[in-house]
Design a protein around this nucleic acid. Sequence first.
DNA 1: ACAGTTTCCCGTAAATGC
DNA 2: TGCATTTACGGGAAACTG
Lengths: 381, 381
Amino acid sequence: EKQPWMPTHPQKPLIIKTGVQFTTKVRLLVKLPEVDYQLKVKTIFDKHLPPGRVHRQFFILTSTTKVMDVEESSNGCLSVEFRHLQLKEKKYVNGIKVNEGPLSVTEELHSLSFEAQFNIQGINIDLETCSFPLVVISNVSQLTGGWASIMWYNMLTDEPRNPDFFASPPRASWGQLSEVLSWQFSTFTGRGLNREQLCMLGEKLMGQQASHNECQVSWSKFCKENIPGKPFSFWMWLDFILELIKKHLLPIWNDNCIMGFVSKETERACLKDKEPGTFLLRFSESHLGGITFTWVKQSDSGEAKLISVEPYTKSRLSALPFANIIRDYKVIADGEVPENPLKFLYPGIPKDESFRRHYNSQQSKVFPYISSTWIPISTLQ
Amino acid sequence: EKQPWMPTHPQKPLIIKTGVQFTTKVRLLVKLPEVDYQLKVKTIFDKHLPPGRVHRQFFILTSTTKVMDVEESSNGCLSVEFRHLQLKEKKYVNGIKVNEGPLSVTEELHSLSFEAQFNIQGINIDLETCSFPLVVISNVSQLTGGWASIMWYNMLTDEPRNPDFFASPPRASWGQLSEVLSWQFSTFTGRGLNREQLCMLGEKLMGQQASHNECQVSWSKFCKENIPGKPFSFWMWLDFILELIKKHLLPIWNDNCIMGFVSKETERACLKDKEPGTFLLRFSESHLGGITFTWVKQSDSGEAKLISVEPYTKSRLSALPFANIIRDYKVIADGEVPENPLKFLYPGIPKDESFRRHYNSQQSKVFPYISSTWIPISTLQ
DNA sequence: ACAGTTTCCCGTAAATGC
DNA sequence: TGCATTTACGGGAAACTG
């Protein structure tokens, strides 16, 4: 049966951090006949705990009731916005310590319930509604895991409420998953993932296959198991890259300068017949949240030699923007004049043509001092 | 009259930040005859508020009573340590909003009181003692101001408690003050301030004088008024330098490589007859927490030309340690080969002799990538 | 409008619990 | 002991408040 009112926010916060304020809003979708008293709404966290399941338990630290009001910016329906709500964990319930459940914290799904009563022509009517599933975290380091849960849930079910979803999470086809991943990038950056990039991700996750689209990817493979030989999962690796783009690479990502998701094999295939100085930008597969460039080096033997720089991470990119690194990078080889080995962005666009608009002069005039900056260099011996 | 017990901690925390845990310890200095019950101590914040003075008011958020215990590590006397104490401001007292006092928050002096009662042979005895003055802040950005108060108080009074001290703070002679400042540096770094450095500070604070030692410095001049033409006070400037040393310059400061406090005039006098490549390290007077180097440039006209680089601040020094900057710094002049202009540390010590032990190789081997680093450069046109 | 002050909260480090 | 999770809090920025 259709709810007569709807929470219009949680959809949004979806991930709530304990001790950090969040906001939620409920709107009454039906017009009530004039009521002569104020309609008070109460918010309850996890009103319907899944029976038998061990869950962390939380409560709303701040005030939980508020009176509905006519919404100005709309067609005069009633709504209420709770601000400055804050969650805290109940460590003990009836003096007994709460145990951890069988799921990891970012797989626990919670919810906010809203309730109100009103009386119309002598009949008491109870209203109740409930938010979409919420993940509760205690530290931003858990955002990656929480976001994975939200994605998986939204991708694979239309149920508004299924707190047990992660007790046995369904698999996703690569067709579904790749679409969602691309959508993540286009939402948070402005550019999604193209066919080649998705293909590399598919191979990384599922190995070489004739066609990936019908392959099924398990929840565990996606974000719980580590990539073989690496201390992080596939999604963790990908989300750190997304964060790196958001904070340090946005314009050049959106401008399509970053091939990014390229296997070592494809990289070699792309570059091996290119002229020296051709380079491409690739996200590191060994380091979390790192980007590197690989270029073709002039070689005496005639065979193409590919060289990659140590990946730049967020801490290094906050010292110098990536476009400037590309512009100024120098390799110092014994006895030779330092030279910038980056000349043509793959397949063959002169570097400055691709990056000029992203160079950052940042020459702070600080009279009487002379300004200074960093030049990124590598030494070849 | 002598207190029969003493708080042994606050002396230490001296500055307490609201919402951040602190620890305090009280020790009973007299041996009590055996008592057959436990001696309970209660902690009270600002028990004796200065009458008539408007003060911010705080309370201890956490538990405030604890039982004294025989101290293991000592001669068996009673002591109690309060841990995880936390302060919170009372914004309203009896429903009335507390106004701000006439002093700035870091000039308000507070105190922790401790009280206990015991009964000996039918006589009730009350014990009470009180900490040294405390400054309460709400953000680390106020540490500089708080520390100034502590220094001024300790320098100019021996009273264990005088909450009104900053209602009319006494002046300090430069003799006293300079000693205290030098002591700050030696306590927090390992090297104090020498005569030349103190002389520069004296001139900065009081202008040119035959002898500074008898000059009186007002509290306001020290840390409330801005330096003419600058948006910060003398002490704020100095404390930012102290922080810079603590975090980024400790070994080279302790190794006496940093002249540091040098006026532009003295700098010119020192360097003007030195050979090209002679340089010295100086803290910026225009930027908070910055260090620069000034060197003698080879000049066609024969006259010495002094050049200073834009000051390095903590954010830039966390990208590259200062010793490496000195080692690798290059100036690029039109059409010339980039050159490191820093050759002899004033008065004439070959650079590597002074700095070699502080160079940091930090070559992270990251096969199959080639490692990279920053080279600090300036461009002269 | 503004300055002094506090609150907010990310992100790293340390502590805690299982 | 190691891993998962929470707590602690510095530091930059925003919000608050007379």
